[in-house]
């Protein structure tokens, strides 16, 4: 099976600083891949560079096996849906209209039908007519997630989709993304909460200084050694009846 997204040996600079130094990932249909790492490790840069949103110094970025630089905007949008970290909305459009922005390729009537269906999936059907700036952060997150799902793309990339959300909304967001993977999508999320990442993702890529420090199943990727070297934490991933949790304290504390 062709990987939905393959990034290999990516190098990229922001200003003079090297933010990616050989970073890589690959994700297949049906899989939820988590990208974790300390602040400044290059998580957002990896997504942006891998999507063609920032120039590459070196490396390969393939969407469904095709080099991203060779895709025109329409082809790229057909292969990937992106939820950026920056989620400030400029105008107070009704939720339904915002969700429908995920499907600009469809005639307006069909786009609205898809939007209605995805709002329903994210539990935001009742909000369809509400202005997105009149909502709570959690409600708006559901609407933006519905917009992402409305792209109907085989690869969904979400940068910090749970930042600023309460615990319930965080779990719901990841559950919904898992549902999309179960429907056959490849899903990539960046996350800061290591326990949440370990529970929600099939595989993790741990980034540090623009390089892959570890990867694999959560138990393997977040070994005590990785926690110590990358995150400066003394601790371990622990299996509990509720799933994996990270028990740790700051190094030397």
């Amino acid at each position: 099976m062709t990987a939905a997204w393959t990034l290999d040996g990516l190098k990229a600079q922001r200003g003079k600083a090297l933010v990616l130094d050989g970073a890589a990932l690959d994700v297949s249909p049906g899989e939820v891949l988590g990208v974790v790492g300390p602040n400044g490790a290059g998580k957002t840069s990896l997504l942006r560079a891998g999507l063609g949103l920032m120039p590459l110094e070196a490396g390969r970025a393939l969407l469904s096996g095709r080099p991203i630089a060779e895709l025109n905007p329409v082809e790229r949008a057909r292969l990937v849906g992106y939820l950026p970290q920056e989620r400030r909305l400029a105008w107070n459009l009704p939720a339904l209209e915002v969700a429908a922005l995920g499907a600009p390729d469809l005639p307006p009537g069909e786009a609205l039908a898809v939007a209605r269906d995805r709002l329903d999936r994210t539990g935001a059907a009742a909000l369809a007519d509400r202005g997105v700036l009149d909502m709570s952060g959690g409600e708006r997150a559901r609407v933006l997630l519905a917009r992402l799902l409305a792209t109907r793309a085989p690869l969904l990339v979400a940068d910090e989709p749970v930042a600023g959300l309460d615990p319930d909304a965080q779990l719901l967001t990841l559950e919904l993304l898992r549902d999309e993977a179960a429907r056959g999508a490849a899903v990539v999320v960046t996350l800061h909460d290591l326990g949440l990442a370990a529970r929600a993702c099939d595989r993790l890529v741990v980034l540090d200084h623009g390089r892959v420090a570890a990867q694999g199943a959560p138990m393997k990727a977040l070994s005590p050694q990785v926690l110590a070297e990358v995150f400066r934490l003394d601790g371990a991933l622990v299996e509990t009846p509720a799933g994996l949790v990270v028990v740790a304290r700051r190094r030397g504390a």
């Binding site: 400029a90 922005l101 390729d105």
Partner: peptide
């Protein structure tokens, strides 16, 4: 006009939307 609507979501989401921004 359609590009202006898409910009509601922000620059990056608009750039990835498939419209020739």
């Amino acid at each position: 006009a359609k590009g202006l609507r898409m910009l509601t979501l922000g620059e990056e989401a608009a750039q990835m939307s498939g419209l020739p921004m």
